[in-house]
């Protein structure tokens, strides 16, 4: 994938934008859904709708929806979904910093394996 090729740059840019939007969206949903004081059923949804997190998540998802369609129209689907797995890594690292979720040894191994797999597909796929 030479960076000088404009088509490859577009693919790489869409891939990066997708990671950013997906991470922002997922973290916003976690912030919306993770509140233990929000109650149950309809009360929980009302509680979430009255706060910005749910809406920030939805906006990120709408933008990601379009970015992902554009990305997948330029690469084979099997390769696209594999490259998209980098979102897992971004989410776990962001969860570590924003929600204090622990990065145990096994989680670090998991993150490295996913990164390795995405790299293999990105470089040789």
């Amino acid at each position: 994938m030479p960076a000088a090729d404009p088509a490859s740059s577009l693919v790489a840019g869409l891939w990066l934008l997708n990671v950013i939007l997906d991470t922002a969206g997922q973290l916003a949903f976690k912030a919306a859904a993770g509140n233990p004081d929000a109650g149950d059923g309809l009360a929980r949804w009302k509680h979430m709708a009255a706060r910005p997190w749910l809406w920030l998540g939805i906006i990120s998802y709408v933008a990601e929806f379009l970015v992902w369609i554009a990305f997948l129209s330029l690469v084979p689907l099997s390769e696209g979904v594999l490259l998209g797995s980098i979102n897992i890594v971004a989410i776990m690292i962001a969860g570590r910093f924003l929600f204090g979720e622990k990065l145990t040894r096994l989680r670090v191994i998991g993150i490295l394996l996913v990164t390795l797999g995405v790299t293999i597909v990105g470089v040789a796929g």
Partner: peptide, 29 residues
């Protein structure tokens, strides 16, 4: 879509799935 299972895709998918399994096991621990 007639997309072939190329070696890099199989290797990449194997590493990714192994990574996902590690993350799942880490959580159950």
């Amino acid at each position: 879509f007639d997309e072939p299972l190329t070696l890099p895709r199989v290797l990449g998918a194997t590493a990714i799935v192994a990574g996902i399994v590690c993350l799942g096991v880490a959580e159950s621990h």
